[in-house]
Design a protein around this nucleic acid. Sequence first.
RNA 1: GCCCGGAUGGCGGAAUUGGCAGACGCGACGGAUUCAAAAUCCGUUGUCCUAACGGACGUGUGGGUUCAAGUCCCACUCCGGGCACCA
Length: 954
Amino acid sequence: MHRLGAMADAPSSDIPTMRYSAELARDIELRWQDFWQTNGTFETPNPAGPLADPDAIADRGEKLFVLDMFPYPSGKGLHVGHPLGFIGTDSFSRYMRMRGRNVLYTMGFDAFGLPAEQFAVQTGQHPAITTNENIANMRRQLRRLGLSHDTRRSVSTTDPEYYRWTQWIFRTIFEAWYDVDADRARPISELIDEFAAGARAAPDGAVWSDLSGVEQARIIDDHRLAYSAEAPVNWCPGLGTVVANEEVTADGRSERGNFPVFTRNMRQWMMRITTYADRLLDDLELLDWTDAIKTMQRNWIGRSEGATVHFASDAGPISVFTTRPDTLFGVSFMVLAPEHPLVHELTADAQRADVAAYQKAAAAKKDIDRTDDTRDKTGVAIGASAINPVTGKPIPIWIADYVLMGYGTGAIMAVPCGDQRDFAFAQTFGLDIPAIQQPSDAWFESRGLAPTLDATAWPEAHIGDAPYVNSANDSIDLNGIDQVATAVAAINSWLEAHGHGEATVNFKLRDWLFSRQRYWGEPFPVVYDDDGIAHVLPEDMLPVVLPETDSFAPRTFDADDADSNPESPLDRLDDWVHVELDLGDGVKSYRRDTNVMPQWAGSCWYEMRYLDPTNDERFVHPDVERYWMGPRTDERPDHPGGVDLYVGGVEHAVLHLLYARFWHKVLFDLGHVSSREPYARLFNQGYILANAFKDERGIYVDALAVEQVGDDAFTFEGSPVTREWGKMGKSLKNSVSPDEMYDAYGADTLRLYEMSMGPLDASRPWETRDVVGMYRFLQRLWRNIVDEDTGEVIVTDTEPDDETERMLHVTIEAVNTEMSHLRFNTAIAKLIELNNHLTKLDSVPRRVASSFALMLAPVAPHIAEELWHKLGNDGSLAHTAFPQADPALLTADTVEYPVQINGKVRGRITVATDAPSDEVEAAALVEPNVARTLDGKAPRKVIVVPGRMVNIVA
RNA sequence: GCCCGGAUGGCGGAAUUGGCAGACGCGACGGAUUCAAAAUCCGUUGUCCUAACGGACGUGUGGGUUCAAGUCCCACUCCGGGCACCA
């Protein structure tokens, strides 16, 4: 028995009991996490509302709102790639708190969406149960990381007390219209008043008071910022729901599930985001975002300036949008999209069969085929013509699938000499290619061609500035002009003066399709009366709670069945759909809207609910919003307001970030928020990548079980596998869970490793074997301050020597600079350098150890708290002032200069820091190796850069 | 095709306004400790030449500006991301 006991103890008996091991780290970390929670260390006071604490606000410094893109609470659990951004924001929040800022930092959950619903469909368990279990699990995993969240402020988009306000915002948007003259949204009641008072003319010359209630309602509905309309939408039979443009991939499939998407006309809810196109574009200038994201948003909004031109035809005027109205004299045919509404009326009887066949073929084509610009041009003449307004001559009308119904007017004027697509089309079908610009001789020369105005001989269209020819009629003459911009201005005034068109701005951005035929989303707070008029429910009837059911699945169809129709799960709940309500004019029966909102709805405004999460009177108290998000005009006069730092992945460049800006601007226009933009500064963190391995069949194998057998050779269970890079995840079988890291090293080591791998905005490969480096750093630090056998501190109360003192202050200075700029990798390197220096000392002075603990706290908070405590301090260091360097201690008495000859270092000299340049020069010239290399020759020139280096030109 | 990024040792990455290229970490090599191993600690580590002192070369490629270039300019190659028949 004694022997067995001794043997059991043997393996650990050599290791000192108070060494910084994974077990000790775990003990320290769990203890401090409890301490923070018990003491409300990270609870942040508000200036007003339920969380108001004006005294605490007065005690703290300037506010700082730090925000992560909130996660979807997946049931699969976290891998080490997920929390990269969270560790960054936490370290920054902790640092800024120690710099005296009043930091708001918390995390909620974006919990509506497909995975929970699909899980519910498979198991019959209500998605709310699954979601809440997943949230609880994720909270536990994130807590173990030691994130300094104000947990009182956490929200979930699926909580009725949260989506009550999502519905309230929908209601607010529904009850608003865009006043183009004022260039802002206004309450719809003001529009009704203007119609009623005659201040605004009703459409089609109608007299407002003569219209019936239904007629009035329809006119009003046409102005609402949220409206339901019959419109071309993206129908995805495989998912059983419609999806937004932004959720369709370039090859015409659904982002979720990768099913084919078909364009169909259906009645759906839309948001009039297009009214904000110019402001969404212009206000990008005010944002501290990367150019990459701004460019993506600009491309998505797709503003282009040009003109609308009307061409007369037998079916009335056909309008086209063009960015090059200056080329109107070169128009030799017109092309309509196959779906253009005038095609049917214009088509000559002889062409009907061909046109119908082409239309059918185009409709059946997937978008990927239709938008492949390398494909040969196809099209059919419809046997009709239109009149070119500048020449008065008839031009043939064709249909072709390179013209898209969804952009501009769905019709183009074709200028083959000035547009490559039109040029290719004209060549394919032998159409005229009149030249209207004289390209330069150089243009012809580079194409191996003698200058000619016979454009059929050109190898391609000419695009850009060149003198105009053949471009005059009785009332306009462009000939001789050589700038496109000049010609555009001239022709635009002519078009307007003669009623043939007008200058126009066109956008690629479409209105936002806002309804989905699913279960697990926010119900619309909308009912329909017997006339089919939509009524939004009053505030006091919110929330409209998602009804209970045990049938969560929308009806899905064969993925290629374009003719199927959506059937929402809520449609089936008759008891819920049919309601008796009093909306102010007595109890009547209504039918509920059975759509739900898209997943983006809840994330359009969540940052504001963090501000005032328990307010049951408003979505956020105005004073609270102004305090945390109001414009910081002291920083710069055009500051738009919003979150001070928003960290997340680049994948939300156009979806979430565009929708949230739109909602925020509507709320701003209507006076509900003081900020024009939700996110003043956006930082895109990189991804953690990992090796993934495929076997000979192309199947991914467990990356952890792969062995390296050569420089670039790997095997799995003895068979060769090939390596590739990918995002860490289940599908590539290369996940590493944070739990494994906690068990092996502890949370502080994991945090340090993730922050030290590289800059926060760069993607970097995960290497489990590298993690040990940060573990060793913490062990060395621990050993420098704590006796590994007794656990007692071993610091001395003597003052540090000069070198240590200077190094401490240099480190303090550098760490402050690096951490303020989110450069934790270099901040950590500086701390390691200081620690390596301390390791060489006989003992560490207490003052240095204390400063070290404070500097380490943002990135490795648990061990820092423990050391701080052991060094004799009470409570948490979370609000203790971060060390500040004494400028007088940053420089030494002497400084070492490298001495270069012709740019190559030949020696080093050490001189007094304040030595004048001529003294430095003199010292440099007598340095033995320098003198030897010069070999007695006089230098031609000597450059002394004070404090840096000496270069001798020999 | 267009628009953004990027390229530095065996690996991840450092390097204010042009001013010592390779901080810091991993790995590798050598040593200490150990019966041995793991863990831990100490040292070396861009490549090449040299016994050594020292020297040559070196930041994707080719030019240029400069006393001095990873950094600035011109031309190009490759890699990553976004957009794309948008009139």
